[in-house]
Design a protein around this nucleic acid. Sequence first.
DNA 1: TTGAAAGCGATACCAC
DNA 2: GTGGTATCGCTTTCAA
Lengths: 333, 333
Amino acid sequence: MVTIHEVARAAGVAPSTVSYVISGKRSISPKTKRLVEESIRRLGYHPHAGARALASSRTSVLALVVPLRTDLNVAVVMQFVASVVKAARDHDHDVLLLTKDEGPAALQRVASSALADALIVMDVESDDPRVPMLLALDRPVVLIGAPDSPSGLPCVDLDFTAAGAVCVGHLADLGHRSIALVGPSPAVYRRGTSYAARFLRGFTDAARARRVKAVPRSCQHSYDAVSSGLDELFARHPDVTGLVVHNEAVLPAVLSDLRHRGRRVPEDVSVVAVCPDSMAENHPVALTTVAIPAEEVGALAVEMTVRSLGGHTSAETRLLAPRLTVRGSTTHV
Amino acid sequence: MVTIHEVARAAGVAPSTVSYVISGKRSISPKTKRLVEESIRRLGYHPHAGARALASSRTSVLALVVPLRTDLNVAVVMQFVASVVKAARDHDHDVLLLTKDEGPAALQRVASSALADALIVMDVESDDPRVPMLLALDRPVVLIGAPDSPSGLPCVDLDFTAAGAVCVGHLADLGHRSIALVGPSPAVYRRGTSYAARFLRGFTDAARARRVKAVPRSCQHSYDAVSSGLDELFARHPDVTGLVVHNEAVLPAVLSDLRHRGRRVPEDVSVVAVCPDSMAENHPVALTTVAIPAEEVGALAVEMTVRSLGGHTSAETRLLAPRLTVRGSTTHV
DNA sequence: TTGAAAGCGATACCAC
DNA sequence: GTGGTATCGCTTTCAA
């Protein structure tokens, strides 16, 4: 292993000087700087992460807690992960991956053992049991999502309440008077996943405000569930002409089943999907969407985290405004 | 921060004793063991990861290199990641997430700075430029995938060559004489992604052996690409009655488009999908599949890695035998 | 069965 | 602008 001492000896300077060249925390003469950097490159020196962490109390690692379940939108989760990792690297940090189902103890462990400097937590629930524990941690935490009481924890997310309203608004503007929501799976609602609850609220409230009928439904991922769900939906509410799908996993199934039952999109049913823009074109009809800005959210979360690490302590909640893109799946009644 | 010294003082023993209680590397009297464990729990002690790494040259962290692109099977990648993380935790390790597009330098960095003890590398290419560098690393490496010349690096993967053959075999057994392959995107083939190449070879070779016609195609993810791809396919090869889809992302589009053009599954076209079993039921027709055993592969990769860390140096390549499950999407001609 | 103390490889303070 | 060195918290050898 190449150590800072070897680099120092090779460059004819003291170890501390090498350290300062690397960190830039004090001014160095151009000559020694050159000398040191040369030696570093020649020897292929990389500072020992553990030693560094021990001496500086900084690991340059962010812990990311993700839900690795299959009843969730895997593709979307992946986008979040990708953008967090990318943003982290842009800020010279690495990412340690934790899964939600290791429970709160894992967060404790990672924080207390100084495996990471800060935590980014996804898949937050409305009344998330992890919040109190996260507050007790002596490390910066940023939530992707928004519990009912963040209690001072900074949050980043799409404004799902507004998103629900935008979907309803768009369809109502087109003259639809009866709008159904195909939401996430029952399990997601059951455990009070924050984004699902917020979207539902936005959806329902906007419908009331616009005086249109709202028919909210949860939906499991299997084709049969989708199919029988739509059976029930149209049987009970034959007047439904607008569909908001907040569940990317079932999008193909919903579209396929609609066609199967002879309902054309958008002539007979208008469909608004809530999903990443990149998924809008992978369907028979280009979908009108409210985008899930995974990229921005991830980048923002990392930025806020890094800022916290810099000592800035702004516990703001940032809910990104929804963006509607009209494509081919919606039309007036 | 709670240190080993404080635990030691609380328990009335020496720090080294605490260390030994934790590691179990020497026998401890039941009494002191109890005492120490008690203090550990009471104080909420977690060993400092950096200090530990520094003293022991062990981080208990595995680096996982994943392709976070969107032209790949995101859902499948996610399954791999999930199973690796789970298996790693089962072996008392954490996972550091690296993306492929940071390039080979990132692997160097992580290895040399002792951020991780070992590397697990996904999305291996047939002639992967990272192989020589991985060999030069002084750390255990396990590949998920199989380059043409592993050069001694241990590999784990589904036997995609055999999988291609199984798909053809099943359809040929049912009497299909002309079989098309809907493969990954052109980009995946272009960069020589190992599994794509191996599957294609298995597919083609088996077709030749069985004297059936093979029509291999790559396929981009957009609906239009799928649709025009099938246009071309059926125009040029109207005799095709068997379809092998090795591209989960386009599965819904393929099925939807088949129905659209009036080809019923399985009456007119038999479809075999290569995808995780969990995706078989999310379609109008339950799909006959050759499973991608992400779970097993991930777990196996971790096991091999941990074994390597234990000093066992078996550079074997383990290709898991494909498993065909017949469901509703295939039938005899 | 236990304790004392020498490192591990950086950082950052104190001198000059 | 540079060097010496105490320090971080743990592991492990040596000694008892």
